[in-house]
Amino acid sequence: MTEQYKAINWNQIEDMIDKLTWEKLVEQFWTDTRIPLSNDLDDWYNLPKNEKDMVGKVFGGLTLLDTLQSQDGIQALKESIRTQHEEAVYNNIQFMESMHAKSYSAIFSTLNTKNEIDDIFQWTNTNDMLQKKAAAINEIYHSGTDLQRKVASVFLESFLFYSGFFAPLHYLGNNKLPNVAEIIKLILRDESVHGTYIGYKFQIGYNQLSEAEQENLKNWAYTLLFELYQNEVKYTEYLYDEIGWTERVKVFLRYNANKALQNLGFDPLFPDTADDVDPVVMNGISTGTSNHDFFSQVGNGYLLGMVESMDDNDYTKWMYSPSV
């Protein structure tokens, strides 16, 4: 007799975090077509040329990482699912990573000429530092263990994006490019859930290892993070030195590197805390979005249902040692 195909039953939940995450992601669903990006054109025209160049490269880099996550990352994580509901959550995450990548093209098509867009993608596909971090993560997705893949995914979701997120959050805090920043806040809100959820799934497997296996994996994770950080510092210097933002971005990087470790249940690597981050950017990182009428597109965001964003306190609520 052939093996029976099992229908997913959402009325019988093995892990309640799967259900809660699914519901949160559905509540947070959004699409770039509902953000009035053209309202930012006056701000864009008034930016200095070197800042426009930086913004294009920042968003090109973010597009590459979201493409990696949607095409390779989530697919790799699906190979070690524990429940059908977990796979459904990963399907949702995979779709939204594709939405994130598309949203940057929406920004490009609004702010940039065709030749500028072509130049941005040429730079993105050939920059050594950007390609290095993508290759490092992708190698783990294709040849790492299940738990190593989860570590790599959390580092991508919760750390590597943030060198790019800094710029639009900075502009938002200075009353510039609010609609571009709204898209970043929507993406950031998604990534905070993605990183927390995948980190939680990592902890389930990690807690089943022997002490020696745990120590080896933890050492591997810290080594990987520091190597990624060293490359990210060079990438940050390349992007931000000319406009004088580099040191503030590095603090932001270290803060989010610690957040990534927290998602995995590990201690921070760097001394930087939220108090050390530029307060203008920290205000922007609060993942709420502007409320307005979904249909009329009033304001610089849109509300689909009653969305609850994930803030620092939610990490504490989610990051507990699961009983397995």
Score class of each variant (00 low, 15 high):
residue 301 G to N: 09
residue 118 D to G: 09
residue 46 N to E: 07
residue 7 A to K: 15
residue 179 N to G: 02
residue 29 F to W: 12
residue 212 A to P: 00
residue 271 P to F: 05
residue 126 T to R: 12
residue 90 Y to I: 09
residue 56 G to C: 07
residue 104 Y to E: 04
residue 299 G to Y: 02
residue 137 I to W: 05
residue 24 K to M: 14
residue 235 Y to D: 06
residue 191 E to P: 00
residue 88 A to K: 09
residue 47 L to P: 00
residue 103 S to I: 03
residue 204 I to Y: 04
residue 309 S to M: 06
residue 80 S to C: 08
residue 1 M to Q: 13
residue 91 N to L: 09
residue 143 S to I: 01
residue 222 Y to C: 04
residue 47 L to M: 09
residue 117 I to D: 03
residue 90 Y to P: 04
residue 78 K to Y: 09
residue 181 A to Y: 02
residue 144 G to F: 07
residue 315 Y to W: 14
residue 47 L to S: 05
residue 10 W to F: 15
residue 12 Q to Y: 14
residue 2 T to C: 11
residue 254 R to M: 14
residue 151 V to S: 09
residue 8 I to Y: 12
residue 299 G to T: 06
residue 254 R to Y: 06
residue 156 L to P: 03
residue 234 K to G: 01
residue 315 Y to R: 10
residue 296 S to L: 14
residue 281 V to N: 01
residue 294 F to G: 02
residue 260 A to L: 10
residue 5 Y to A: 14
residue 55 V to S: 11
residue 299 G to W: 03
residue 72 D to W: 00
residue 135 A to D: 15
residue 11 N to L: 15
residue 272 D to L: 10
residue 297 Q to A: 13
residue 324 V to K: 10
residue 35 I to K: 01
residue 164 G to E: 01
residue 306 M to G: 13
residue 192 S to K: 03
residue 291 N to H: 13
residue 272 D to V: 11
residue 210 S to H: 00
residue 43 D to T: 03
residue 284 G to V: 00
residue 231 N to R: 03
residue 91 N to S: 13
residue 7 A to W: 10
residue 183 I to C: 06
residue 64 L to A: 08
residue 186 L to H: 12
residue 184 I to T: 12
residue 74 I to D: 01
residue 69 Q to L: 09
residue 9 N to S: 11
residue 288 G to K: 14
residue 224 L to M: 13
residue 277 V to R: 04
residue 9 N to M: 03
residue 231 N to G: 02
residue 265 G to F: 07
residue 33 T to M: 11
residue 51 E to S: 11
residue 94 Q to D: 07
residue 8 I to N: 15
residue 279 P to C: 07
